[in-house]
Design a protein around this nucleic acid. Structure first.
Lengths: 202, 202
DNA sequence: GTCTATATGGCGATAGAC
DNA sequence: GTCTATCGCCATATAGAC
């Protein structure tokens, strides 16, 4: 491999990722990516074959990277309540670092309902098994309320993720400044964990 | 106005709405709409000026229609707990009747962050004021726990709406059949209301 | 109001020289 | 690996006849 190959490849990847996240896949053209990455248009196809393949690669990269950390928390050996606290906190921190990730993933999910079905990164993203077993075991031991684990898990995800999908609405309707919004989201960490844990305790 | 005018207009509107919801605005061309509505391409621009204007109209129509009912519940004079129960139930029923609405609204929100800012239908959609006052009053009367009303409201919305945005993920990962998914969502009505009310009671 | 024809430009992708 | 040039198609929108 030549010297310039990695740098060119990386430049395309970085630029395309940025634009896909910001503008949405279907509102970014390959010409725009090439121009902003300052590379020749043909190199896009030389390295990635097609825009669609490029998208798949970027999607995989983005998700698998983030999903692993979260998956590890869900599968760790800590107590159920600590698990909920740590998961909520880590997930929110990750999304604060990647504010456009939620809209991007949801839009790709809407765009390609099938293509993602088997994708490993997506499997990690929505990975209920171990957590649901933990929840079930605690309920059977009488330590927490009986719940449908799937309902609980989906609820936890909803509470964590959805506010990022409607960020603009929240900011606009509350007349938040940027700092106030971040503070609002930070405060959700305790709020969510509290709500979930209180519910289990009853 | 000629006899055919309304029927043509309505045909375009209905077809465009269906396609926008299913495929996403940017993956539907005006030619496709015209063909499926069985009207001449030029009539699109004759009636709606441009695809973008057509989108705005459709968005407004879809949202304002649904938002009014929900807004009325939030502003009614029933008890706080009843309000939460009725709102959750009505919202979920509405989304079950319009399964693609969530993805559509989120995608338009992502596509046009600004254009929607002042839109009345959107204001109704995210309409916190009266509900937050109610929540605050009950807390001050010592009937429920002290909470940040905005956090509570956003949480309620999240619990209700988000599962519709990740429907494909839920169905796929749980190997749900269509009926099982609908049942899962129906069960959320009580689950969500329980969780929210239990939390307030503590 | 409805049609045909077309303007104008963008898109993704590739052939082939270097 | 990188470039220029271009193919073939589709997009949105409009002019003008009827």
């Amino acid at each position: 491999m030549g010297k310039k190959s990695t740098s060119t490849r990386e430049k395309i990847l970085a630029t395309a990722t940025e634009l896909f996240l910001k503008k949405g896949v279907d509102r970014v053209g390959v010409r725009e990516i090439a121009a902003k990455a300052d590379i020749n248009l043909s190199l896009m196809n030389y390295y990635f074959k097609s825009k669609e393949k490029l998208l798949e690669l970027i999607f995989e990269n983005l998700i698998s990277e983030k999903a692993t950390v979260l998956k590890n928390i869900l599968e760790s050996d800590i107590s159920l309540f600590d698990k909920i606290k740590q998961y909520t906190s880590a997930y929110i921190d990750m999304l604060l670092d990647n504010p456009l990730l939620v809209s991007f993933v949801l839009s790709v999910l809407h765009r390609n309902p099938d293509k993602l079905k088997g994708m490993t990164s997506v499997v990690n993203l929505y990975n209920t098994e171990k957590f649901c077993m933990h929840l079930k075991a605690e309920a059977e031991a009488g330590n927490v309320r009986e719940v449908t684990p799937e309902q609980f898990y989906v609820s936890m995800l909803s509470l964590i993720i959805f506010p990022f999908a409607i960020k603009d609405l929240i900011v606009d309707r509350n007349k938040f400044k940027k700092k106030e919004y971040v503070e609002f989201i930070r405060n959700r960490k305790d709020f969510i964990a509290d709500m979930l844990i209180q519910y289990l305790k009853v």
